[in-house]
Design a binder for these strands. Structure first.
Length: 202
DNA sequence: ATCAAGATTACCT
DNA sequence: GGTAATCTTGATA
């Protein structure tokens, strides 16, 4: 297919956060790790929009932590939470929008040995662990070894980037309420690929 | 300076 | 299905 497996450019990210969230499903996230690559297909995301969404980190305005979310789309927003976990987000929209898409789950494609090492510190993997490898936002960051060092990375660069792939059909996308939040709980801004075993929760 | 909450996960019953 | 672990951020004083 003509546009398959080309790096997504700036104009993909500077659109509305909900459009980007849905379009990110099925795309390939790639992280260059020295001479090796870790990659996976995005199967679950959530949209956050500080202008209307009380659950968004940007709802109360600019802070040191959320600064990057108020910039132009196509950069990585990473935050640390619950004393243990990093979560990574794709900043979207025009400058000042304060919007981003949380990457909640991916299906491993390459560098799986590295993911296993990063997640479990060993090489063994049973059938249960296989689907537990990247089925949650904290798990994805751990598997990809994404930390605050990657805060603000330009996604059109060569360290972390996304590859295009055929669009997921509307009938294969499920919209649901977001997970793990207390405010604005009724917004159906969680999107995932129907019947994919790597989705964090049905 | 102090404090509560958090876009989670792993492990328990 | 319930909860402890763990620490940074952001709000309040």
């Amino acid at each position: 297919m003509k546009n398959s497996f080309q790096k997504l450019n700036r104009s993909f990210y500077t659109r509305d956060v909900l459009a980007v969230a849905k379009d990110l499903l099925g795309k390939i996230v790639v992280k260059k790790d020295g001479s090796k690559f870790i990659s996976g297909k995005i199967v679950e995301v959530e949209a956050y929009d500080g202008s209307v969404d009380q659950a968004a980190h940007t709802f109360l305005g600019v802070t040191k932590r959320n600064k990057i979310m108020f910039g132009e789309g196509g950069f990585l927003y990473v935050y640390f939470t619950y004393g243990n976990h990093y979560c990574c987000n794709v900043v979207t929209g025009k400058e000042g929008s304060g919007t981003a898409v949380l990457i909640r789950a991916v299906e491993p494609i390459s560098g799986i040995d590295l993911m296993i090492k990063n997640r479990f510190g060993r090489s063994l993997l049973n059938e249960k662990e296989k689907f537990n490898l990247t089925s949650g936002p904290g798990k994805v960051c751990k598997a990809f070894a994404i930390t605050m060092d990657h805060y603000g990375i330009d996604l059109t660069g060569n360290e972390i980037y996304f590859l295009d792939s055929p669009k997921i059909k509307i009938k294969d996308i499920v919209a649901a309420k977001r997970i793990g939040i207390i405010k604005s709980v009724d917004l159906p801004w969680r999107f995932y690929i129907k019947d994919n075993p790597y989705v964090s929760k049905k």
